[in-house]
Every structure is written in structure tokens, then in C-alpha cells.
Design a protein around this nucleic acid. Structure first.
Lengths: 167, 167
DNA sequence: AATAAGTTTCAATAAATATTGAAATTTTAA
DNA sequence: TTAAAATTTCAATATTTATTGAAACTTATT
């Protein structure tokens, strides 16, 4: 396989993976592109490489900056902005995990906490509901804690986690 | 909050959570509904409760059965089919994890394994690409292993994992 | 074997999401 | 200031994904 071909396939695959794990396709692709680029890239270069519009590039670059995984860079004597990705693979995963917990899991937990305390009602159906929602609340809550624990170990968290799980 | 209201809100929330974690909204809602129901439900009942069409109910029930988290039940003297969910919360999460690994992570890994061995090329860009794709391959591969380890502990895997991560 | 009850399929449609492109805005250099 | 360069915004459009509903099919009953 030639380099150009390999690169394109990589960008496609990483985009698809990203869109399945909570960040959209273009965002994942831009991030991937910046990751593998030796130098920081201008918006033009990103547009060109991924064949996307200016608006799309602008919005998704901002998105990545909001997520804290891409940074702006200014080159001396140059007017335009350049972008570079956080070089650390782990930090991408960590930030996705944190963000998803905040945006999805925590809000869902609040609702679960709420509904499991509905005005009591002695019917069989209501009793089972209470039981199950309590169980689900516990489960989601534990899963969220687990995610936090995995991801908050400072470095090499995947390796560390696997090690601990060996025992 | 009244029971009916609590139930509806629960079904909504669980559906939203599901759709963010790789199973579609209706599927997650049907599963949730079956989980909290004391008795198994007919397709009619599912349609009625969630206000969805027959086709939708049929396809998503089949999907849940394919995933192995919902079962058909036949009541003596009754012609229609009834459905009940696996009562175990853990098994839902376990099956989602297994399925996602199989459908998304493993295929992506195959591509990564492939592209990182492109026909070598001494340019700076190509060298960095090689380095990063190798790194990403390692990362995804470890993450997949970790997911497998977490989920393959037989019972109480979340609790066990949290315990191990405490040390 | 005919018919009614129940289920599945799938083309058509709707809903949700992502992308474009050009006008409006902001920034910088002369 | 002014004007060119760069970026952002957002209504229009395209794409993707989910849902409907009715015809086709399957299964059970008489």
C-alpha cells in the first residue's frame, strides 16, 4: 500500500470509530489528521486534505478546541491560525470519557434518582418498577465511578488497569 | 410524581442513554419496558405502551433477541408471542460490550494493523504517520483487551473492577 | 383446504444530523 | 481609517438513520 492510500484509509477508519464513540466523524478525522502531521496545519490545509467546506472546518476545529484536545498556534509573521493536536493518545480518550460522563451519564443519573422516588403506589407493577430503577441507578452509578477511576490514574492508565485486572 | 409519569420519563431517559451507547432508541426503550414489567408482554402491548408501529416493534424485538437479551415466550392456549427481558442488568452491559468490540473495535484494529505497514517511505510525514498509527494500534488494542477483561469476570464485575482499581 | 390471527418485510416517508457556501463579522497590516 | 485576509455564523441543503404501514408471508384453527 502506498503512503497516500494508507493515510486516507486511516483517516476514514478513525473517523468511523470516532463517530461510534461520541465525537462526530469530521471532528475525529480532523483530530486524526492533526495527530499524524509533523507540523501544525492551517484551516485551508485541513479543508484541502479532508475535502470539507470552510464552515465545516471552522465549526469542528472550534469543537475540538472546546474539548481541549486541539490548540491554536500562531506562526510569527503569519496572519492565519494554525492548529495542532494534543500529541498524547491517552489524553484524547480521557477527555472523551470525562465529557461523556458529564454530558450523558450524569444527567441520566439525575433522572433515574428522581423517578425511583415517585409517589409510592402498592401495585405489583409499581413495586417492580421501583426495584428495577433502583437497580439500574446503582448500576449506572457504579459504571460511572468505574470510568472515572480508570481514566483518572495519571499515566499509562490502560496498562495499569489491565495489570490490576489480571490479579 | 405519579407512577405513570415516572415510568414514561424513565423510558425516555433509558432510550436516550441507549442510543448514545450503541443500541438504538427504540430498542433500548423496549428493553427497558420489558425489564420493568412484571409479566411478559405481547407485541401489541409494546406498541401501545411506547406508541410505535407494528413494523418498528417487530424489527426491534427481533434485534433484541439477536443480541440475546430478550426471549420469546409462548403462553398455553394463546396464539401470540410474548416477550420478556433478561432480568439481569449486568448481562445487558456485557452483551453490548461484546457486540461493540466485535462490530466496531476489531474491524478498526484490522485496518490499523494494515495501514501501519504501508510501503515504507523515508519522508518526515510518513515516518510520523508510522509512529502514530503504531501508537494508536497499541492503544485501541489495549482498550479492547481491557474491555474484555472487565466484562468477562463472571458476576458483579463492576463492583469487582472498582475494588481492584482501589488498590 | 380455507380462513383467520399473528408476524415479517420493505419501499416510502419522516426525523435527526451533518455539511455547504456565501454573507456578516472580526482581525491585522498598511 | 481603510481594505484585504481570515474566520465565524447560519439558513438552505444533503446525507444518514429511524419509522411507518400495508402487502406478503407464516402459522394455527376449524
Amino acid at each position: 500500500m502506498e503512503f497516500k492510500e494508507a493515510k486516507d484509509q486511516f483517516l476514514q477508519t478513525w473517523g468511523a470509530l470516532g463517530s461510534q464513540w461520541g465525537i462526530n466523524k469530521t471532528m475525529a478525522q480532523i483530530h486524526a489528521l492533526l495527530m499524524i502531521s509533523p507540523d501544525s496545519l492551517s484551516m485551508e490545509e485541513v479543508m484541502e486534505e479532508l475535502q470539507i467546506s470552510r464552515g465545516n472546518a471552522s465549526m469542528n476545529l472550534r469543537g475540538l478546541i472546546d474539548w481541549g484536545i486541539v490548540y491554536k498556534e500562531y506562526k510569527p509573521g503569519e496572519r492565519k491560525e494554525y492548529f495542532k493536536a494534543d500529541q498524547d493518545v491517552d489524553s484524547l480518550a480521557r477527555k472523551i470519557a470525562i465529557e461523556r460522563s458529564k454530558r450523558e451519564i450524569k444527567p441520566a443519573l439525575r433522572v433515574l434518582a428522581d423517578v425511583k422516588n415517585f409517589n409510592d403506589n402498592p401495585s405489583n407493577e409499581a413495586q417492580k418498577f421501583k426495584m428495577k430503577t433502583e437497580e439500574l441507578y446503582e448500576f449506572v452509578s457504579k459504571a460511572d465511578t468505574m470510568l472515572g477511576k480508570i481514566v483518572n490514574q495519571k499515566e499509562n492508565w490502560i496498562t495499569k488497569t489491565i495489570m490490576k485486572l489480571m490479579s
